[in-house]
């Protein structure tokens, strides 16, 4: 038997320490990318090894927020993969329109790029007034930024192109003011959004949703954790509710996937259970 690599042992001990001391459980995260991020954190804090970082995290509670922020990957875009949002507006919104009140949960909202994308789409479809969006993440720093709705102006061009490709009917710049190298999104877009801390590993059902958007979050989870979170989504969705995953995500290895049927395979849009008549 080959002995395990010392770095891998240190990674497991780090995970265990975060769990025992701080109650954050990363044991269900895929190891290869988690290891890269933990090593990155160690280097940024001048630690020679992950073991050194573990000691610091155990004895300095002040370090925890920046560690959580470092393990989270709040990388996103507005209208990322435009065809997905076009499919939502064209094929899913007409069905949502039949509900008097619409609940949407966006899980893993990062700095809010996608939740504002949804708000704009719903506004343009005339559905926003009767919609409540819950935008959740476990990274408080990212949530605070999401709540502000301020982004670097460097993103403007790419996001505007995405918006047009998604079939946007106005100009994306109608929704923000560009000042001091920043884009500040229209305050009105926030009126039906609730931002909240929710950890997919530990927290449970909190709403009955017609649509759940959780893109590029489960890609960080092992098959077991992915399956558990899909179970959470199943219990949070109304019958016939929609689930949108990231473009390259596969749920083929999760038992809970049996409850979902493919609605738009390319856009990774699934529907819970049998379609109601």
């Amino acid at each position: 038997m080959a002995r395990p690599d010392p770095d891998d042992v240190e990674l497991e001990l780090f995970i265990r320490a975060l769990q025992l001391r701080h109650g954050y459980d990363f044991s269900g995260y895929a190891r290869a990318s988690l290891k890269r991020r933990v090593q990155g954190l160690a280097i940024a804090r001048q630690c020679q090894t992950i073991g050194e970082l573990t000691t610091r995290v155990l004895h300095d509670d002040g370090l925890l927020p920046s560690v959580i922020a470092g393990l989270s990957v709040p990388v996103s875009e507005m209208f990322r993969n435009p065809f997905v949002f076009k499919a939502l507006a064209d094929d899913v919104f007409p069905v949502l329109a039949s509900y008097p009140h619409i609940n949407i949960w966006q899980a893993g909202c990062a700095r809010g790029e996608e939740v504002y994308t949804l708000a704009i789409l719903l506004e343009e479809a005339g559905l926003y007034e009767r919609t409540q969006i819950y935008a959740t993440d476990f990274n408080d720093a990212a949530l605070a930024q999401a709540q502000e709705g301020i982004f670097p102006v460097a993103e403007a061009r790419a996001w505007s192109e995405n918006y047009r490709a998604a079939g946007g009917s106005a100009s994306l710049s109608d929704y923000w003011h560009a000042r001091y190298e920043h884009l500040k999104l229209d305050e009105r877009l926030k009126r039906n959004i609730t931002f909240a801390n929710h950890n997919l590993v530990a927290d449970g059902v909190f709403c009955e949703a017609h649509l759940i958007l959780c893109r590029n979050v489960l890609i960080y989870f092992t098959n077991e954790l992915q399956d558990r979170v899909l179970g959470l989504f199943r219990h949070s969705l109304v019958r016939g509710g929609y689930l949108v995953l990231g473009n390259k995500e596969s749920i083929a290895f999760a038992a809970s996937a049996a409850e979902f049927c493919e609605f738009d395979a390319r856009a990774r849009i699934y529907r819970l259970g049998a379609v109601p008549a």
Partner: peptide
């Protein structure tokens, strides 16, 4: 590797993707 994602190999020989920076 698909465009836009990092491609990683896990210890069990399976692929994982990430959108890390």
């Amino acid at each position: 590797a698909p465009s836009g994602y990092h491609l990683l190999l896990e210890a069990d020989g399976r692929f994982m993707l990430s959108v890390d920076p």
